[in-house]
């Protein structure tokens, strides 16, 4: 197992209609409907970014989670040299389905441009970068399941090579009614060691 001098500064988890930041519940809703949950969470946690409503659900989920880490109340500024490494299993499947339904009937063929632009999972990275004016490295991987090792390798490369001062890692998966977001911020400061065991422990918390 690779040991590095890097640490996990903070982490957030969104699942089952609740948001936990650094292990503490910061928002929860009784609704089982993801769209409604995201709307309520937006009002409670963001509230001043109307573009949020134009995004697909995957981007909304990713942005909402990233807001907890990139702009916590205790921080006055965001490190602009923060790279993004995200992954999931379902890619942009939910939006792909929505797009497909608009082009299936040849006699009612009206694909929506605002749906089509989200038929790639990495668009959510663009949304986060635009919100926080990040001009940094980013990549979105599609993999069978959450893999701490893959995140660890990519993150350590970016930090060791000096291409980024911090790396925001994220697993953001959405398929029908099943969704989860797990994000963590890695840098050279923090209390939690950046290794596979710790990452997996935080993910499964």
């Amino acid at each position: 197992m690779e040991e590095t001098p890097f640490y996990i500064e903070s982490y957030v988890s969104i699942k089952e209609s609740s948001i936990a930041f650094n292990g503490k519940n910061v928002f929860c809703s009784e609704t089982k409907d993801l769209q409604l949950f995201l709307k309520k969470a937006y009002k409670a946690r963001i509230s001043n970014y109307p573009k949020f409503h134009k995004m697909d659900l995957l981007s909304q989920l990713a942005l909402l989670a990233s807001e907890c880490i990139l702009k916590p109340e205790s921080h006055s500024s965001i490190n602009k040299n923060t790279a993004l490494i995200f992954a999931n299993h379902a890619s942009s499947l939910e939006t792909d389905r929505k797009h497909q339904s608009s082009i299936t009937d040849k006699n009612n063929y009206y694909p929506s441009p605002s749906v089509f632009v989200y038929t790639l999972p990495n668009i959510c990275l663009g949304e986060i970068s635009i919100k926080h004016q990040l001009h940094t490295e980013n990549c979105f991987l599609v993999m069978p399941s959450f893999s701490p090792k893959d995140f660890l390798i990519q993150t350590n490369y970016l930090l060791k090579s000096g291409k980024a001062e911090k790396v925001l890692c994220g697993w953001v998966n959405l398929d029908a009614n099943n969704y989860e977001a797990f994000l963590y911020l890695v840098s050279n400061t923090g209390a939690i060691k950046h290794n596979e065991t710790e990452i997996l422990e935080l993910y499964t918390k």
Binding site: K54, Y110, P111, S112, P113, S114
Partner: peptide, 13 residues
């Protein structure tokens, strides 16, 4: 610009 495209589709539909 995406909104503009959406309005163009709306005019057609």
């Amino acid at each position: 610009s995406i909104d503009a495209l959406e309005l163009i589709v709306m005019l057609d539909k």
